[in-house]
Design a protein around this nucleic acid. Structure first.
Lengths: 111, 111
DNA sequence: CGGACTATTCTGCATGACGCAGTACTGCGC
DNA sequence: GCGCAGTACTGCGTCATGCAGAATAGTCCG
């Protein structure tokens, strides 16, 4: 029904894409994803994804103490991460292409 | 890593799309999906999806005895199913658009 | 006829990702 | 001090995918 199922397997890619543009901390990544149109991402999902990607060796992290609140834990793409992004992006494009074509073909002649 | 996670929440849509074109039985739907490019769908997933969609009231079913093997259980889209397909397709296009844009933007300046 | 193989359906269980709800800590405004 | 916003993290539930396995019905081989 909602996008929660659609997100599965795609949040990794979305997070990588966002971090590719600029390092970011969890709370901020959530906001950026929502601003990009993924309005229904839960923060817990992002933290979980960040942790998975980190343990997978795709991200490095550093803490920046903030005087305007708690510390911020920044994440940054490393070589492995950029490589993963590239491959994931390719997989996504192929997958999305196939499915879009299937859907278009099926709904073209429908009202 | 593979497409199994990508499929989540999308198999419903793919099955609906395939059935929109022509009624089909499980084994056949699997083949059609694979032929369409979704080469990694598992048959058990399709049977499960078919059952979910049926219980959701999106499909009707009828059995056709086959002379070349066991009976075939055909599934057909009804009004609810076509409506679901239309709405799911819309959701998919929006979602895919957002993500593709995000990914393109992030990988544009990458090697 | 027995055995093997294909077509076809279905179920049990494991895996794993998303997210709600809750915890915790830091400054700021009142 | 109280509460609210920013920020991080975790436990548990839910649910879809899929592997492995079972069962039935025909066909072909010897």
């Amino acid at each position: 029904m909602d996008t929660s199922q659609l997100l599965k397997g795609v949040l990794d890619l979305a997070v990588l894409a966002v971090l590719r543009e600029e390092d970011g901390y969890g709370y901020d990544v959530v906001r950026r994803l929502r601003a990009a149109g993924l309005s229904e991402v839960g923060d817990a999902s992002v933290y979980g994804t960040l942790r998975r990607l980190y343990h997978a060796g795709a991200l490095t992290t550093y803490v920046v103490p903030s005087e305007e609140g708690p510390h911020r834990k920044y994440y940054s793409l490393n070589g492995t991460g950029r490589d993963l992004l590239r491959r994931s992006a390719k997989t996504w494009r192929e997958f999305a292409g196939v499915l879009t074509e299937l859907v278009d073909h099926a709904t073209k002649e429908a009202a």
